[in-house]
């Protein structure tokens, strides 16, 4: 019964918002031309994706996929780089007291600096190139992953550590077979937060620091007054963020199967 009712409920609010949006434009509840109608966005989006067959003048015609790929590639590279550094570092901070005392305070000190505030610094150092974007994305995704990994390591059950020790496990074995799997749920939480920040960072970076990708299109479209393209970009980024989050959740379900058993028991 509950299962039957679940699916439609989720769609009620989005549908209502869509209708409200349509009516707002239709009945001119806001001044004309400020926001496009849903139908208009859809039409522009179609052109943006597929292009027009004959003589289209839109500079956006058929460029959607390219820009999606530019942005996705940056997110994947930046996020991958962040995970590659943050997971081992978080393991070491949580595991080794000296590393923790040495590195953790600095991370906590730098973390409150908003990723957007790094933008001028990134451009000054890396220029208007991909490196700037990667730096911002990587840095943004790095913090939640490193913090959650550290937290997960420190939360490892003392009894499990003792059990491993009494079975003859040395540091390496304890780290690989006890601490890492025990911290894995936290690591996934960090990665979910991290990928969210990565999409935020890529848009900001592309608006200013590079000349391609969805963030660039968004800012460009705003400048030339193409709010329809702006809205289509927003929805695109939202969808990409949603899909990448689902991918991480799906991976975690596979790797943390022992945990879903626990919940179902």
């Amino acid at each position: 019964m509950a299962r039957v009712l679940r699916a439609p409920w989720a769609l009620v609010l989005p549908a209502a918002l869509l209708v409200l949006w349509h009516l707002t434009v239709e009945y001119r509840w806001v001044a004309e031309g400020i926001i496009p109608s849903p139908a208009q966005v859809l039409r522009s989006w179609e052109v943006w994706i597929f292009g027009v067959t004959k003589g289209g003048l839109s500079p956006y015609s058929g460029t959607w996929l390219d820009n999606v790929l530019y942005s996705s590639k940056r997110v994947l590279q930046g996020f991958g780089l962040a995970a590659l550094v943050a997971i081992p570092l978080g393991l070491m901070i949580g595991w080794n007291r000296l590393t923790g005392r040495l590195v953790d305070p600095t991370i906590q000190l730098l973390r409150p600096v908003p990723i957007t505030a790094w933008l001028p610094f990134a451009i000054a150092v890396f220029g208007i190139y991909d490196a700037s974007a990667l730096f911002l994305i990587g840095l943004g995704a790095f913090y939640p992953i490193v913090v959650n990994t550290t937290h997960g390591v420190r939360d490892t059950n003392l009894l499990l550590l003792r059990a491993a020790r009494m079975m003859g496990a040395g540091d390496g074995t304890v780290l690989a077979k006890v601490v890492f799997p025990s911290a894995l749920p936290s690591i996934f939480t960090g990665m979910r937060l991290g990928i969210g920040v990565a999409w935020t960072a890529v848009i900001v970076a592309e608006m200013i620091a590079v000349k391609s990708g969805l963030g660039y299109v968004l800012w460009d479209a705003y400048y030339v007054g193409r709010m329809d393209i702006c809205v289509a970009t927003m929805v695109s980024v939202g969808a990409l963020g949603f899909v990448s989050d689902r991918v991480i959740v799906y991976a975690s379900r596979i790797l943390l199967r022992w945990r879903t058993l626990e919940a179902g028991a």
């Binding site: 059950n157 009894l159 499990l160 003792r162 059990a163 491993a164 009494m166 079975m167 077979k177 006890v178 799997p181 025990s182 894995l184 943390l256 022992w258 945990r259 626990e262």
Partner: peptide
């Protein structure tokens, strides 16, 4: 010197 603990202390991922 093997230990059996008060709690089973098994590795839940194994």
């Amino acid at each position: 010197r093997a230990v059996v603990f008060q709690e089973p202390a098994l590795f839940p991922w194994y």
